[in-house]
Design a protein around this nucleic acid. Sequence first.
DNA 1: TTGCAGACCGACCGGTCGGTCTGTATGATG
DNA 2: CATCATACAGACCGACCGGTCGGTCTGCAA
Lengths: 233, 233
Amino acid sequence: MMILMPANSPTSLDDEVEIRPPDSRDKILEVAEGLFAYGGYSGVGMRQLAAMVGLSKSALFHHFPTKIDLYEAVLDRVLVRIEHGLNGAAIHEGDPVAQLDAWVDAVVCTLAEDAPAGRLMMRALVDEEPFPAISLGVGANGAEPDRELMIFEVRLAGIVERFGGLLERGIAEGVFRAVPTGDAILNVVGTLVFYFASGDLGEALVGESIFSHSAVSRRRREVSQFIRGGLLA
Amino acid sequence: MMILMPANSPTSLDDEVEIRPPDSRDKILEVAEGLFAYGGYSGVGMRQLAAMVGLSKSALFHHFPTKIDLYEAVLDRVLVRIEHGLNGAAIHEGDPVAQLDAWVDAVVCTLAEDAPAGRLMMRALVDEEPFPAISLGVGANGAEPDRELMIFEVRLAGIVERFGGLLERGIAEGVFRAVPTGDAILNVVGTLVFYFASGDLGEALVGESIFSHSAVSRRRREVSQFIRGGLLA
DNA sequence: TTGCAGACCGACCGGTCGGTCTGTATGATG
DNA sequence: CATCATACAGACCGACCGGTCGGTCTGCAA
């Protein structure tokens, strides 16, 4: 009992000063990210994960109380990276179009950096496996949350909310079409994430690995143009 | 027990004469589609499925030799519906823009008709669970297929190929931007499918069920405008 | 030197997994 | 009537599942 670990990254206000990476824990998260991304929650066994990390299964349960806790930690880890990428981008400078470009480019670059992230995000948004479905707290119609939100859901809600604000400012200024923000957010997220989750299908379509340097730099141009075209007035 | 009505649509009464669909088989496919869509391949057990269908587990194995065969049949079933929707649309009439609109609208309408289809498609495109990854036969760089293609993969390849041809004609006529077709296809597919796979997230964003009549009719307008804006010159 | 905490292992638990085997009720066919 | 295929049910199998338990080893502090 009394398991919840106090020691962890300062969650959000990162910058630097990462104190103590206990190595094993990070390695578990790193390997688990890859496995969960490709196999899904129930497609990955703790024994398999332990073997690939190079630890015993019990060691995993020493670091994470349950499999679900591990899965949540993995999800939160990639969301932290996305948040970090956004914080480092100029998403608050210039007109809404420039902000949109910075936003899109930051997400694309973050997703391009580690391959499993895109698939994992797509799973988190679509899957219903460990937990019923992801939630964002209050919906657009103001329905109150019917259950406790998980850490990564709060983080995701923050990201979505920030993007929704950008959209609404752009619409108010007349730079963007008067789109329903819900549909627009889903369009953008789907476009951004699906490419990096498309794996071999994407490779077959673009003719090379979707994570190769040339494919990513082409992607940065194309997705920006596509989304601008879809949103601008 | 034994509540679900036996009445079933003749699945795809297109063209040919389907002889005698033994009812149970269709029922299994119908229930399995819902379960696989929300739980994923390895998140659904044959016992659970059997219980929900109202049959014994052995009955499932009587109709489908393995779980993977059942999964493939379920995937192929929704692809057949999408294909059917496309065949019934005016995707060969008018200029490329009109064809694009018809194409997009046909897919949206098909996906809006049964809720699990979108999630299942997203899974089929992203998951790596039962089979390594989906393939389309020859890639854009002309690599030959390294393994036997499954039925639904052939069907998917046909659909993608037809859409790629539409894109290229539009580009040749100067109506579409000179986009790399691979990226463009991924953009369109991601935008089209993700909405209907977004579940509670989508509901929170659009403020009502993503399958409600008003949400779907709004979606038809919005996605069409978004994709046209992203593709047109 | 003692004591305690974190990291880790191997064995084991009840339960579930996909899949097989045997048997049987039913309806069509000869 | 006998025969045979279809369409199921129920018992069962070995493998594997997430999770727990007792115990070991190491490092650090008193």
